[in-house]
């Protein structure tokens, strides 16, 4: 690839996509040459950047401004011109609690239930996700037959859509499902998993770990494989016990990767919505409602669409994510250093 082989060798001449691209980009040859003559060769960078930056501007940066504006205005109109200014009313309503430890004591109890559930979910999920991913990566890093196959086995659910994942497990966990069949065959009583708040949260965590652990396993495995083999050989020659090798060599050297995974899991967990929403619908009651579900429902699914309240809640979530991302960047920098 480093030699100046003609591009046609990388892109087979007969490939349809390549031909289409040649025809389509050929159409732009003349206009772009004209533009280049106008702006000069080096400023073409801006021309190349323009479409992407335009999309970022329209769908990321502009929306942040709109979000702030929405969060300080009221009413049910979507467009800013038709919305009365209400100041910090939405934030005050969201933060109005007699005790932050009791979601029930808050004016916007649904939001706080979401916060409490998300925190609980995040905590359990982080421990379970990082734990299983680490153990799996350690096992896969040994010299085992069929490593590629096993890696694929753990990884494939990552590609499944959240709706598919949730439906697969809903079918297994339903009242007359496979798991209850196993329980009754073993002499137990059927359990209504989605009627019991504790079980619903347990399965929400379990299913999300099932779906995503393969991804983190891959990252940790890449980290493990980067640890120099001679360290292990030296330890073996010294007769170091395996537990000591784990705590003195493997984990310390894997630590930077582990931190990155930890924060990545955290950032994703805080935004949990899809799988849990399809699996439990937030129920029973509000036992598994997450912050994002609160935002979605407040803005789109409730009878009265309260865009301002939803925007204010997403600003709060955004602040949390910003802090977590800074944490991630800090860890990443330390890893690089």
């Amino acid at each position: 690839m480093a030699d100046a082989s003609p591009p046609t060798r990388m892109m087979p001449r007969d490939a349809l996509a390549a031909r289409l691209w040649q025809a389509a980009s050929g159409l732009l040859d003349r206009p772009m040459a004209l533009v280049q003559r106008l702006v000069g060769g080096n400023r073409m960078a801006w021309i190349f950047l323009a479409p992407n930056i335009f999309f970022f501007g329209l769908f990321v940066f502009l929306p942040i401004g709109i979000n702030i504006a929405l969060s300080v205005t009221g009413g049910t109109n979507l467009f800013l011109g038709d919305r009365p200014h209400v100041g910090a009313a939405h934030y005050e309503a969201l933060l109005d609690c007699r005790s932050y430890l009791e979601p029930g004591s808050c004016r916007e109890d649904h939001f706080w239930k979401g916060v409490a559930n998300t925190l609980k979910f995040t905590l359990f999920q982080m421990v379970a996700m990082v734990g299983t991913a680490l153990v799996t990566a350690l096992v896969l890093n040994r010299k085992i037959r069929g490593r590629g196959f096993f890696r694929a086995v753990y990884f494939f659910p990552v590609l499944l859509s959240p709706v598919v994942v949730a439906l697969i497990w809903k079918w297994i966990l339903q009242r007359d499902g496979l798991l209850n069949a196993a329980i009754t065959t073993a002499g137990g009583q059927k359990i209504l998993f989605f009627v019991d708040p504790g079980w619903a949260m347990f399965w929400a965590v379990f299913v999300s770990v099932w779906a995503h652990m393969g991804f983190y396993t891959l990252i940790l495995l890449a980290g493990l494989q980067a640890i120099p083999a001679d360290l292990y050989e030296a330890a073996e020659m010294d007769g170091t016990p395996p537990m000591r090798v784990l705590t003195r060599i493997t984990l310390p050297l894997l630590w930077p990767n582990l931190l990155v995974v930890l924060v990545l899991v955290l950032i994703r967990a805080v935004q949990t919505f899809d799988e849990v929403f399809v699996l439990t619908g937030g129920g029973p009651g509000t036992a598994t409602v997450m912050i994002v579900q609160y935002i979605y429902e407040t803005a789109f699914a409730n009878q009265v669409q309260n865009f301002g309240r939803a925007a204010a809640a997403s600003m709060l979530l955004g602040g949390l994510l910003f802090a977590l991302t800074m944490l991630q960047l800090w860890f990443a920098r330390r890893k690089a250093a």
Binding site: I53, F56, L58, F59, V60, F61, L62, P63, I64, G65, I66, N67, L70, L78, F79, L80, Q271, F273, V292, I295, Y296, A299, F300, F307, A310, A311, S314, M315, L317, G318, L321, F322, T325
Partner: peptide
Amino acid sequence: LLVIGTLMIPITIVLVPVFLV
């Protein structure tokens, strides 16, 4: 930096304003 910045703003945060746009 701008491109990195967009990493921090997932759709969960700008759901309502993107809907407006």
